[in-house]
Nucleic acid binder design. Structure first.
Lengths: 212, 212, 212, 212
DNA sequence: TATGAATGAGCCTTCATTCAT
DNA sequence: GATGAATGAAGGCTCATTCAT
């Protein structure tokens, strides 16, 4: 993998890449997302960076710390990142919701973002649950505003409305937008997300015509 | 953990329960779902069963085989199991869909089922993706029948309709119905699922008002 | 290997062979000679007998004891067995020596004897050295008698004479007459042994014609 | 064994010698020759080197590879090494044969060579058979030349002649010149070898008297 | 900073052996 | 006698980590 044949003790002439710390995190993201924390080995990460494993210890205190640094990075890069960071309250729901599509699926489709998705997945239920509840909490004022303004039907609890929006998206991300996703997967997810957001926007906004 | 101080090479004087194989699988499910395949150790499983680790090797060829046996068991116990095994085509969608709730969330709430959910989660994207695509495929004829019969709006592609139904459920399961779920989580999920199914049934069936 | 499908606790209806102890030793000889003491496992032996491993413990105290029983059997069956047990002193050397061929190589060529040879080989230098010294000791009076009687040249020390006879034979046995020997090996050894004994008998008996 | 009580995870403050790979092979030779491949443990080898067992894995891929490295080294150090590498064809047999003694037994008597002998012995019949056949093959042209030149009696097949020379030597090596050989053993072997070579040279060269 | 060599801990697995039936 | 299930011991090997350079 590493073609350099420099073999001597001590520091090699010069490190060929910029910011080794960054490269370590990149490699770690890949390895951790593919194999999970325990399944990944420090050697694999080091190999991917192109250095020997003790080198990592110059930048991080250990495997655990690399992982945690990754998690810290993951936060803003997750579900949260896309639409939820915008000032959506100001935009009418009918427009804001489909709008999220462009942001969200595009954002989620990058290799890095997909690797993060896999990473969180691998972390077990806690990792995922936290993210979702986090996003849910962030969206609540937005949806409440929409409901107050009449954009969102009043007969649906805000929580349920939120869930109807982000639930399928979360499922989508997990099922189709992970590290190993193929292009077909991504396209499939794109269509599903697009249609989902249009439909759900519609059904959440429209006043019911008949009740039973 | 084991207070007995019997120390001799061979088999101990009395083993307390039969059906060790079953108990191994139970313990393994728990441990694997909590820590993932690599994170789990044979020792932990054996300890949970209350035997020494070599004992497992009388029943399974190795760690891998225990895991695989678990996966095999997981099939019927997963997403699929609940509503999808019924002959739903015969039932009107408006009734069938909410009906699934009783089956599904109840089924998913058992500790065993939740452990399985965590297990599959831990298996990485492949595990999950397969399950969802499996369920999707199984539901397709049902939904198609509904659409042909007029129960399901014709302006929504069957795939999207299915996803709108199971997408939030999948997310739910992952976010709230995993091995470590608290009672609050479960209740939360129950309400979400119930309302979701009612709402989605409605919005999938009702003819559009032609709004825009 | 064992076609019987009787599977129930306790003793099976009847053991199909005679003298299990004997069969165990046979199997053990085979396994030990193929893999050495540590390389052999109790299970392999038991499997070859067609019983389960704990069954061996009804006949022997353990692996070690089986091995020792084998060694005890090996003694008479080894180098010693063939010619050396006869009353060779009475026979003229020129006749006795070639005569040994019929006994020795024939005896050594049986699968059992060859397995024993491998067994002793595997035991390390001690096993082999002991055997050779043993044989040497047994032959000494015979050769001394021959030398006294004029059959054996007086200018060769008895020890050397013995070694010239049995040395090649020992090497032969080890190199060609072991457990895995092919028929070609055996034939080769046969010829070598035959010619060797004839030649050595000649050169040990004939008075030297010239000295320098 | 190691009195230092330094206990910390990584590398210890100072390692005392270089050339660990060499030292591992030395230790391994000893252990393998004493106990055979299966009987030897990686931990024993490491202990003899004075390191912990994982250290070996920095130099060899595993137990098997250590063993194989040893076998590779064994080649030149075995039966072959001594006389057979010389250009013996040029030397008259009567002189060359006894000459081998100085080389061979001296070479075989070194602790290392004796350990190798035990090692090969432990490898079972294959190991030994190969060596002997190898040597036999190497000597054939030499003996053929001698026979053609009249040094070697024409009434003895070359193969048999070779065997009469090396057979006792092989037996000697196995019986007396192994890893655990005492000084007495070595002396005994030395005398036997010396006399053997002189006698055999004589009897292979002298023309028959036409005795019967 | 980065490396090679080394380490303690621990993992999966096999083995000889034993108990209760 | 013979069996299935279980056990303590130990083996080979991997891993994260550390020291000296």
């Amino acid at each position: 993998m590493n073609e350099s044949v420099y073999t001597k003790r001590g520091r090699p002439p010069r490190s060929d890449g910029p910011d080794t710390r960054e490269r370590i995190l990149d490699a770690a993201l890949e390895v951790f997302s593919e194999r999970g924390f325990e399944g990944a080995t420090v050697r694999q990460i080091a190999a991917k960076v192109g250095v020997s494993d003790p080198a990592l210890y110059a930048h991080f205190k250990g495997k655990q710390e690399i992982f945690e640094a990754l998690i810290k990075l993951a936060g803003p890069d997750l579900l949260a990142s896309a639409g939820t960071s915008l000032a959506l309250e100001a935009v009418p729901m009918q427009i804001a919701l489909p709008e999220m599509f462009g942001n969200i699926v595009a954002t989620w489709s990058t290799p890095r973002a997909r690797a993060f998705a896999s990473l969180v997945l691998r972390m077990g239920p806690d990792g995922l649950g936290n993210v979702l509840q986090d996003v849910s909490a962030r969206l609540r004022p937005v949806f409440a505003a929409w409901q107050a303004g009449g954009d969102l039907r009043k007969d649906i609890p805000v929580d349920v409305a939120i869930w109807q929006v982000i639930g399928p998206l979360a499922g989508l991300r997990i099922a189709y937008l992970h590290g190993q996703a193929s292009n077909v997967d991504i396209e499939h997810a794109t269509i599903l997300a697009k249609t989902h957001l249009k439909t759900v926007a519609q059904s959440l906004s429209q006043t019911r015509n008949e009740e039973g």
